[in-house]
Simulated scan of single mutants.
Amino acid sequence: MKVLLVGEFSRLHNSLKEGLTDLGHEVLLIGTGDLFKKYPVDINIDSSFFNKRIPLLFRKIILSISGFDIAQLEIYFRFKKALPKLKDFDVVQLINEDALAIHPKLQIPLLKQLFKQNKSSFLLSCGDDYININHYINEKERYSILTPYLNDKSVIKKYNYSLKYISKSYKMLHDFIYENIKGVIASDIDYHIPLKHHEAYLGLIANPINTKNIVFNPIKIEDKIHIFHGINSISSIRKGSTIIEEALKSLQQKYASKINIKTTHSLPYEEYIKVYDNAHIIMDQVYGYDQGYNALEAMAKGKVVFTGAEQEWLDYYHLEADTVAINALPDAEHIAKKLEWLILNPEHIETISKNARAFIEKEHDYITISKKYVAIWSSRS
C-alpha cells in the first residue's frame, strides 16, 4: 500500500510511518514540523523565508496590522509546488482538519487537488476540530480543554486557536473535508466522545508508540523523587499548567528533603524528551480523559504520569484507577494529595512504572496499531 500522511503535531504520524514501513508499505510524510517542536517530515513545507530576521520583522508588522500571518502564503506555495509528487497514493490521511495550518481559503484549493489525484482520503480527529470544539463548548462533559475559557471569557485570546474551528471559514473547511473523505478516526477518548454517534466515524485507534526506540528503565527510588513539569507556553492554559504549578508549590517546601522539581518552558521535542529522562514523575495535563502523545512516550519509558486517566478511559481499557497512570483532575489540592501519596509510598512509583510500560506495549504497539489502520483503510477503499 502507498500511503501519504499529511501533517504532524505530536509524532503520531512519524510512529505510524515507522510501523507501516516495517510492514512493507511505502509511506511519505509531509508537514511543517509544528513550530518549535520540529518533528521530522519527509517534505517540509514550513515557512523558512519569513523566519529570517528582516522578513520576520515584516511578517510581524503585517500580522499586527491585518491579523494575517503572511508566512501562510509561503506554506501554501511550498505545498502547491509539492503537489505533483503527492499523487497516485492508495491512502491519504490528514492529521487534523487544519493539517496544513493555513487559512481555509488557501487550504481548500490545495486539498481539492490532493483528494482528486489520489484514491482514498481519511481524517484523524487528533487535536482540536469543529466537532470536538463544538461539543465541549456546549459543556456536554464534566470538563474539557475549554473549561478555563468557559469559566473566564477574559482568556479568549488564549483560545483563538481552538475557537477558530467553529468560525464560518473553518466550518466550511470541515464540511469540505467531510464531503471528500471515506471516514474519520479518533486517536484517543477525548476525540472519541464527541464523534461516537457521527455517521462518518470509523472508531478509535490508539496512538502508535514505537517502543523499539524507547528505552524502559525500571524506577528504583534511592534518593529524592524527581518530578518534571514541561510547560508549552502556547497550550499551557489548555493543559492546566497553573493548577499543576500550584500543586507542586504546595509540596515543594513541605517535602524539600524528599523531592526535586524541574520545570521547563517550550522546549523543542528532541530536547524535551532528553530533559525528562531522569524524572520519576511527569506532570502532563489536567483537562484530558485520555493521554496525549507526550504522556504515552513518558509511560513507555516507565515514568509515572499525571495526565488524563478518567473513568471512560479505565472502562475502555479495563483498568483499575492509579495503576497505569494518575488521573490529574483540574484541582490543585487533588493533585497535591496524589503526589503526596506517591512521595510517602515510593514503592507505588516503582509498580506504576512497570505497569505503564506493559500497558503501552499491549495497547499502543506501533506495529499492531499500524495493522489496525491498514484494516480500516482497506475496508473503505
Rank of each mutant, 00 (worst) to 15 (best):
L150N: 03
Y178W: 13
M172E: 07
G240T: 03
E179I: 08
K164G: 09
I225Q: 03
Q285W: 04
Y178A: 08
I166F: 09
N232W: 12
K274D: 11
I156Y: 11
Q253G: 15
E222F: 10
I193A: 03
P194F: 06
K157M: 08
H174D: 02
S236C: 12
D223V: 10
S241H: 07
H280G: 05
I156S: 12
K220A: 09
S154M: 08
I234L: 14
Y149P: 00
T263W: 03
A256Y: 11
S257C: 11
I189V: 13
I243G: 01
H197M: 12
P148M: 07
E245G: 13
I244C: 01
N260P: 06
I231R: 07
D152M: 11
I214A: 11
K262W: 05
I214T: 12
Y143E: 01
I259H: 13
L173Y: 00
H197Y: 09
M172W: 02
I234G: 12
K254F: 07
S187N: 12
D223N: 15
K220E: 14
P218N: 04
Y287I: 01
A206Y: 04
A279V: 07
I181F: 13
I244S: 04
G230N: 07
D190F: 09
Y191R: 06
T147P: 02
S162P: 09
S257Q: 15
T242H: 13
K258N: 13
D277F: 08
L150H: 05
Y178L: 14
I177P: 06
D284C: 06
P208F: 03
L163Y: 00
L267K: 13
P194Q: 05
K182N: 13
